[in-house]
Simulated assay, not measured.
Amino acid sequence: MNALLDRPIWSALATRQAHLGEGAGLARRYRAGILPLAAIGTDDPQALADLAALAQPGETLIFLMADPIVPPPGFEVLTAAPAVQMIATNVPVVAPDEAIVPLGESDAADMLALATLTKPGPFSLKSQTLGRFWGVREGKTLVAMAGERMKQPGFVELSGVCTHPDHRGKGYARRLSLHVAAQITEAGDRPYLHAYAVNSAAIGLYEAIGFTLRSPMHVAALRKPD
C-alpha cells in the first residue's frame, strides 16, 4: 500500500496541502490557526533539529505516523496513544440523503462548537480550508458533521465525524461517513481515516461500511519547552 500514508501529515504538507503549511528542511506543520499537526520526513537528528526550530516555545504539536514517534531533545510528551489507519476497500453506494447538507463559512462557528463539545480531533474555525464538510441540522442546531482533512496524491482523509450527545443513536455518523466517502470517491480519490485503537465502536462502524485496517499508527502531543 502507498507509503504516502505512513506519514500522512508529512506527505500532505509536501504535496496537495503544501500551500496550507510551513517549514523548512525535514519538518513541516500546518500554519498556526489551521491545525496543530506537524511531521518530520525522517527520524534522523537533522529532522528533529528542523522540528525544534519550527515549533514555538510553549507550543504543543500533534504527530501521527506509522513509525514510533521520536520527540526532539527537550520536548515534553503530553499524550501518546496507539491508533489505527483504515482505508476504503468496499464502501457501498448509497442513495442521496436529503438530510445531509454542505457546510460553509457561515456554519464555521456552529461547527467549532460541535467539535469542541464532542472532540473528534483537532479542529478550528479554519478547518474548512482543508476540504469539504457536510452536516445534519435539526431545526437550526447542527447536530452532526463530517468532512475532509489531509490530502495526498490519490487519497483524502475522512475526518471530523461527530454527533451531538443529545442526538446519538440516530445513525448520523454512519450516514455522514458514507456520504463523505462517496464524495471523495466520486472526485477520484480513495478515502481513508484514523481512529484511536481503543475506540472499538468507531472501528466497528467503519468496518461495517467498507473500511479495513491498513496500518497501526502512533499519535502523540509534544510540547516545546518555554
Score class of each variant (00 low, 15 high):
residue 1 M to T: 08
residue 2 N to D: 15
residue 4 L to T: 04
residue 5 L to R: 02
residue 7 R to E: 08
residue 7 R to P: 06
residue 9 I to Y: 09
residue 10 W to H: 00
residue 12 A to F: 01
residue 13 L to R: 14
residue 14 A to N: 13
residue 14 A to H: 15
residue 19 H to F: 08
residue 22 E to K: 13
residue 22 E to G: 12
residue 24 A to H: 14
residue 25 G to T: 14
residue 26 L to G: 10
residue 26 L to I: 05
residue 29 R to V: 11
residue 32 A to F: 10
residue 33 G to V: 07
residue 37 L to S: 00
residue 38 A to M: 11
residue 39 A to R: 03
residue 39 A to T: 06
residue 40 I to T: 15
residue 41 G to W: 00
residue 45 P to T: 11
residue 45 P to A: 12
residue 46 Q to G: 03
residue 48 L to W: 02
residue 49 A to W: 00
residue 49 A to N: 09
residue 50 D to Y: 02
residue 51 L to K: 01
residue 53 A to C: 14
residue 54 L to A: 12
residue 54 L to I: 14
residue 55 A to F: 12
residue 55 A to S: 03
residue 57 P to T: 01
residue 57 P to E: 04
residue 59 E to G: 02
residue 60 T to H: 10
residue 62 I to R: 15
residue 63 F to Y: 15
residue 64 L to V: 06
residue 65 M to P: 00
residue 66 A to R: 15
residue 67 D to E: 15
residue 69 I to H: 01
residue 70 V to G: 06
residue 71 P to C: 05
residue 71 P to S: 05
residue 73 P to T: 04
residue 73 P to R: 01
residue 75 F to H: 09
residue 81 A to P: 01
residue 82 P to I: 09
residue 82 P to T: 01
residue 85 Q to N: 07
residue 86 M to N: 11
residue 96 P to G: 01
residue 97 D to Q: 13
residue 98 E to A: 13
residue 99 A to N: 11
residue 99 A to P: 04
residue 99 A to G: 10
residue 100 I to T: 06
residue 101 V to R: 13
residue 102 P to N: 01
residue 102 P to R: 01
residue 102 P to E: 00
residue 102 P to H: 04
residue 103 L to T: 12
residue 103 L to Y: 10
residue 103 L to K: 12
residue 104 G to Q: 12
residue 111 M to E: 04
residue 112 L to G: 08
residue 112 L to A: 14
residue 118 T to L: 04
residue 121 G to H: 14
residue 122 P to C: 12
residue 122 P to M: 06
residue 131 G to M: 14
residue 133 F to P: 03
residue 136 V to Q: 06
residue 137 R to V: 05
residue 137 R to G: 07
residue 138 E to V: 13
residue 140 K to I: 08
residue 140 K to M: 09
residue 141 T to Y: 02
residue 143 V to Y: 07
residue 143 V to I: 15
residue 148 E to V: 07
residue 149 R to K: 10
residue 150 M to Y: 10
residue 151 K to A: 14
residue 154 G to P: 07
residue 157 E to Y: 02
residue 158 L to K: 06
residue 158 L to A: 09
residue 159 S to T: 09
residue 159 S to I: 04
residue 160 G to W: 15
residue 160 G to P: 13
residue 162 C to M: 07
residue 162 C to L: 10
residue 163 T to G: 11
residue 164 H to W: 13
residue 165 P to E: 15
residue 166 D to W: 02
residue 167 H to Y: 15
residue 167 H to P: 03
residue 168 R to A: 01
residue 170 K to Y: 07
residue 171 G to S: 09
residue 173 A to K: 11
residue 180 V to W: 09
residue 181 A to M: 11
residue 183 Q to P: 01
residue 184 I to H: 01
residue 184 I to D: 00
residue 184 I to C: 03
residue 185 T to K: 10
residue 185 T to R: 15
residue 186 E to L: 15
residue 186 E to N: 05
residue 188 G to D: 03
residue 191 P to L: 12
residue 191 P to Q: 02
residue 193 L to R: 04
residue 193 L to I: 02
residue 194 H to N: 10
residue 199 N to F: 03
residue 200 S to H: 14
residue 201 A to N: 12
residue 203 I to K: 03
residue 204 G to Y: 04
residue 205 L to W: 05
residue 211 F to N: 09
residue 213 L to V: 05
residue 217 M to W: 13
residue 218 H to I: 04
residue 218 H to R: 13
residue 220 A to V: 07
residue 221 A to R: 09
residue 222 L to G: 11
residue 222 L to P: 13
residue 222 L to W: 13
residue 223 R to E: 00
